[in-house]
Design a protein around this nucleic acid. Structure first.
Lengths: 239, 239
DNA sequence: CGTATTTTTGAACCCTGTCAACTATCGTGG
DNA sequence: CCACGATAGTTGACAGGGTTCAAAAATACG
């Protein structure tokens, strides 16, 4: 169906044309419920580098990532930073059913998100078991992923961490229309951000990437691009 | 009410006398629903050291911890072990709504648990939104806790890790009937298990504990007991 | 009381962090 | 289009915290 109401711009975008309509938690809702949810939310764009939510702040917002990449991060009093997770399109962000969020949410790229006041969302979710079920599924998956990351942080060497990181990014970011072609992707991270993610310093990350390049495992066409030349070798490095 | 059917032992214990009845996810269920849930579950005891679920196995069981302490752990191919979480009485274990569990569940002490076949539990939960809500709350809390632990694994020194660990155990295990009295508790862990939890070797853990004792921050009456003499100092060490 | 297990202690080593300097890249304005 | 400064990334030297390997000490267990 083409959009016949073109020109009649509404204050809030409709869910119908939402890029993540079929993948975000909203997928479980019928049109009526979706409309009701839409009425308590709003779309917003945030710029790269902008902080959506500060660590320790009251949890006032939750929402869906429509486009772009965000990170969750925790900074200790002395300035050490640890990234806790990366959120992509269709992922759910924020802490429902809780007063505070003890991590920051920062945009790594320009991003589009669809946000809801937490209290209103909580109420809505309580009335819609299918939505809560979707949220539970997502939370369980995120917990699985986070636990996997703990193994990396607790037990892996710098080489293993960087290799595992590149492999995960290859899976999540590469547009592998062709299996035979070398994996190529643009990281939404600078070196420091990779370090924060892997629990390493920027220098160590840089050295590991240099070494992988010198060994012919990857290429780095520009600062943020990676081409995986030898996936097997990379997997071997990831342990 | 006293138990008037004493002697008529049923094959399955009732929920009425369950020690975690008010704290586990079952708390949201009315008597009728509780009875229905009870009918698909069973109580079992497991011995210290026993593995309830192996990493990579099909997720066939979920359940509540009634008594004792269990750990979730992940072992990489080369034998390195990382503990992913510690489960106490009233905690929920297992991976509902998913085919596999990619961590092991091991009893650190003799334990009592109340288990359900996963598929049957999943179905039951889908029909009981309040139960799913409780499960969601728990999962969100566990995710918060796990993310906090990531900071420890990614960014903290050995001293900070051991101190933070002892403080958390003090909060979870000490029977502090008296605020002024020094915190005292018995760890359900050996040194190796502490290492697996903190991403350190057994030797490093041992040295850190020795140092804390020499500095007069703690005492170690026996292998597994800890007395916190100077909580402020311990908090300072934890960063 | 002897053996197995756990914990502690010691010494050498090495990976990663730290500090510093250098290089490359990006963006801006002349 | 180039010059310039600002930002990001790389490289080198060095030190230190934690691991590794080895052995002794303490504790648990039969």
């Amino acid at each position: 169906m083409s959009n016949t109401t073109e020109g009649l711009t509404k204050p809030m975008s409709t869910c119908a044309d939402c890029g993540v309509r079929e993948r975000a938690i909203c997928q479980s809702l019928c049109d009526t419920d979706l409309d009701a949810l839409n009425r308590i939310g709003r779309r917003q764009t945030i710029e790269r580098g902008q902080t959506l939510q500060w660590q320790g702040d009251d949890s006032l917002l939750v929402g869906n990532v429509i486009d772009g990449v965000l990170k969750l991060s925790s900074t200790s009093t002395d300035g050490r930073d640890q990234t806790l997770g990366i959120m992509f399109a269709s992922d759910f962000i924020g802490r429902p059913f809780g007063k505070v969020t003890d991590h920051s949410i920062v945009a790594l790229t320009d991003a589009k998100i669809c946000t809801f006041p937490r209290a209103a969302f909580d109420d809505f979710a309580r009335d819609h078991p299918d939505l809560e079920h979707g949220l539970l599924q997502r939370t369980l998956t995120e917990l699985d992923r986070t636990r996997q990351w703990m193994v990396l942080l607790g037990r892996k060497s710098a080489t293993e961490r960087v290799s595992a990181f590149l492999l995960e990014m290859a899976d999540r970011l590469a547009d592998n229309d062709n299996d035979a072609a070398p994996l190529r992707f643009a990281l939404p991270f600078g070196r420091q951000e990779i370090g924060d993610l892997l629990g390493l310093t920027i220098e160590t990350v840089s050295r590991q990437i240099t070494r992988l390049r010198e060994d012919g495992v990857i290429e780095t066409p520009d600062r943020r691009s990676i081409v995986v030349l030898d996936r097997d070798a990379l997997e071997a490095c990831a342990g």
